[in-house]
Amino acid sequence: MRIYAWLVYFFLYMPIAVIVAFSFNSGRYAADFQGFSFAWYGRALANPFVTKALVNSLIVASVTAVLSVILGTTAALALERLRGKLRAVFDSLIYVAIMVPGVVIGIATLVALASVFDAVNSLMASLWPAAWGSAPRAGLGYGSIIAAHTLYTLSLVILVVRSRLVGMDHSLVEASADLYSTPFNTFRTITLPQLLPAIAAGFLLSFTFSFDDFIIAFFVAGPNTTLPIFVFSSIRRGVTPEINAIGTMILGVSLILLFTVQVLLRDKRQGNAAEAA
């Protein structure tokens, strides 16, 4: 049983470990470890295509995370007040959104955006005065990646914030009202601070997902290249230690963010225990 477990971990993590190890290889061949070096990290960060892709990824991930948190938190608060069948419908829709494969979200978003752009562009072209030159055209780009990512990460934020909201003692809100606080002031001074760890966790989860995502971005990125798309297209020219270095950096950032999420959500449990005591 124990050997079996070790084998599972071996198959799961060995490839990742190899990539991390070879990112420090001083030689130029992926399969032959010649010596320890940070050289490939320097090469990767000096490559303008890598930095451009990295900046693209950071912009997309940040905007996705901000949008998801705003929309997701307000949605969670609204769903909390919903009762009965309507609530059950929304609950299952949220879970469905998380379980739909990335490929489906990618294709669906692409098709939907393409038809919307077609309609909007032809309408704009017909309305645009000829004197102003050619009409602006909407197309795939940052906006479409952000929209597709937010579609998915929104559900993550709703779930995380909702679980915190359910765990929140409703008598805190009543106590606030009892102490002359208007409903808006209660939201600002009591509910929001209570939800903050969950909102922060939702932000980081959304950021990590968007930063790492390849499948959805691949469909809707248009001319823009995010870091995962860059890695994928470079691999066709052979795996170099430079790719290993980029992969290791992505892995490092993701692990740090996920670890922070864990800490934020654990704090919440300790907080509740202290309240009960």
């Binding site: 003692d169 008598s171 805190l172 009543e174 106590a175 606030s176 009202a177 009892d178 102490l179 002359y180 606080s181 208007t182 409903p183 009591i190 601070p193 209570q194 907080g271 202290a274 309240e275």
Partner: peptide, 19 residues
């Protein structure tokens, strides 16, 4: 509404604001 009533309550589990 409760926030305009000149009464105050001590709640069963105190409902102190933990933050």
């Amino acid at each position: 509404p409760p926030y305009r009533r000149a009464v105050n309550m001590v709640f069963q589990h105190y409902a102190l604001f933990p933050h």
